[in-house]
Nucleic acid binder design. Sequence first.
DNA 1: TTGTTATTGAAAACCATTTCCATTAATAGA
DNA 2: TCTATTAATGGAAATGGTTTTCAATAACAA
Lengths: 157, 157
Amino acid sequence: MPRGECRGQGWWHGKFRGCGYRLTLGREAILEVLAKSEKHLSAEDIYMKIHPRHPNIGLTTIYRTLDVLSSLGMIYKLDFGDGRARYEFAEGPKGAHHHHHLVCTGCNRVVDYTDFIDEEVELLQQTEKGLGKKYNFKINNHIIQFYGLCEKCSGKK
Amino acid sequence: MPRGECRGQGWWHGKFRGCGYRLTLGREAILEVLAKSEKHLSAEDIYMKIHPRHPNIGLTTIYRTLDVLSSLGMIYKLDFGDGRARYEFAEGPKGAHHHHHLVCTGCNRVVDYTDFIDEEVELLQQTEKGLGKKYNFKINNHIIQFYGLCEKCSGKK
DNA sequence: TTGTTATTGAAAACCATTTCCATTAATAGA
DNA sequence: TCTATTAATGGAAATGGTTTTCAATAACAA
């Protein structure tokens, strides 16, 4: 199932079915929350958002679904070093909103930046290709993150 | 305490003292293990290596010491996504052995690569400077990691 | 040598995530 | 539409890396 032929309402029907997954209420609800929401939600954040409307969807299901969505490439699993995973909607194919993260180690605020992205992407592709060949890796993902202190936290210190 | 004026046997004495830390057996033992060892040790790895010689050093102390060393910039705390932190000795100043990591998501093998490092470092510095100014961050760290499947794991599939 | 206080070890607590297992429900086929 | 199959679910319990607690110990300054 080549990633990326998705767009429009309900495109995920095919995505699920095509991979032998069933389309359930929970899965749709979670996808919807991630698609609409501010970014970087934790499993519990998602649970909280979904619970009022779907009180019968448990946290376990959230975790399981997030794994599925993540393995389908529909969402990204992120780690900002605060001990809980965060998830963000993978905005369609072709990296339309490709960005990386700038994390404040003081207050855990996260800034999505797109500055220098073109240069980054170019270097990443080059590196990916080089490394892949040299070490015989089939590379399919990368992380770039910057850590520091935001204005507020820098002052506090 | 400006990082980086360290070299030679026992340079850490000053590093510790200068920051109000005491120099203890445990701290030296842990530093030594990290300095000598293959890279990417987990807290428990370190515990196992130290235990035969120092059976009275507990895992708790390992964790506490790793925090201290990490906050002093003497070691790096790494996350390869397998649920446990790894640590690696910060090889002196000036990024003498600056490298990044290529992680196999199949078997968790980690390759340290230095290919394209110069280009990377240049871009990183540029980005760091740009982001720092634009978002008023005092950036002091970054991560770059590639994930994929190594030859073996790629075949298995 | 002595007093102060950072450091320690062991056990318990923490807490995000996973596993278990009996129940439910999505889907394919009749 | 109805039915059988089996993936998906939820609640409770387990997991496991890391942190906290607290009384005992030991590094260091004087």
